[in-house]
Write a protein that binds this DNA or RNA. Sequence first.
DNA 1: GAGTCGTGGTA
DNA 2: TTACCAAGACT
Length: 347
Amino acid sequence: MCSQAIERWFAAEARNLPWRSNRTPWRSLVSEFMLQQTQVARVLERFEPFLERFPAAKDLAVADVQEVLSMWQGLGYYRRARNLRCAAQAIVTEFGGEVPLDVDALLTLPGVGRYTAGSIASIVGRRRVAIVDGNVTRLLARVYCDGGIPEDRSYVNRMWSRSQALVEESEFPARLNEGMMELGAVICTPTSPSCDVCPLNDRCQSLSAGCVAEIPPAKRRANRAVLHHHSVVIRRRGKLLLERRPESGLWAGLWQAPAIEGDGELSGGELADQLGFPVERLARLGSITRQLTHRTVHIHVHVADLASGVRMPEVDGRKWVRDADLSGLPLSSAALAVLAVPGAAAC
DNA sequence: GAGTCGTGGTA
DNA sequence: TTACCAAGACT
C-alpha cells in the first residue's frame, strides 16, 4: 500500500531528467556513477558531453585515462571515473560489450556496489530488487520513525529490509525505486521537508509523532585535518609549468601548478629550497582555502620565474602548457582556482 | 566501523 | 562563518 502511493506519485510528478529519456543500460550506468554522492544539478553539466564522447562501453574501454579524467573535471571523486573505465573494459571482455542487468553480474564491476547494482537491475533490468541510497534512507527512517544511528550496521540493514519489503509488495518495482529516490530528493528533503504535499503524509510515523526534523540524525563527522599546500605558478615563453599528482590519494593523477605539501606554513626560503629546481623572484600572491570532506586545505599561491639558464625539459609528470591548452588536461577545481588568483594569470 | 575520496549549494 | 549534504564504493 505504501508502494503504490509512491508509484502513483512518481508517475504524476516525475521530473524529466536526461537519463530517464532514451534510457539505455550504458547511459544509466554512466549516470549512476556520476550521481554517487553528487547532486543532480552538477551531473547535468557533465552527463551529455561525456556520453557524446563515450557513447558505448567499448568507446570508454579504449580511452586514455587522462582524457576520461578530463571529461570528469569538476565532478569530484575522480576514482569513479577510473572505475567506470575499468568497468567498461570488463563489460567488453566479460559481457560482450553489453551492460549486465543482473545484480550479481553488476556487482562484479569495479565501482558498482549494492545501491548501483540494485538501481540498474531494477530500473533498467526490471528486476524485483531493492535499493537504498541517501534519499531512501531518509524517507524510510521518517516513515517508520527510526531514530537509530546511521553509522550502525543494524540501521543500514533495517533500511534494506524495509526497501525489500516494499519492493515485494510493489506493482512496478522500477517505478517504486525511482519514486522513493525522487520523493526523498524533492519532498522528503533533509531540511524543511514538504510534508503537506507528501503522498505518505497519512502514514508517516515521524510526522504524526512530530519528530520529522530529528530524523535521521546527522552523521557524525571526524574533524577535518588542516593541510597547507604551497603552489608556485611559473611561466616561461607563454607557457605554464604543470606537474601531475601521484596516482593515488587526493586528486590522483590530476595536474596542478608545482606544489609542496605539508602540515604547516613555509617561509619563502623554505619553499624555494624544497621545490627541487631553482627559481627567482618568488613572491606570494595570496591564499585560498578548499573545504574537502575530511580535510581543510589552505593553498598558498606564489608566482616565480625559473632561474635564468635553467632547463626544465618535459618528463613524465611534467608539462609546459599554453593557457589555451589547459582544457585538454584534467585539473581539480582547486588547481584551477590557484591559476585564477590575481597575479597568477597570464599577462 | 572508521577513514578516504571533491564539489558547490544551502541554512 | 561553519556545518551539513548529495542517486556510495572501497579499504
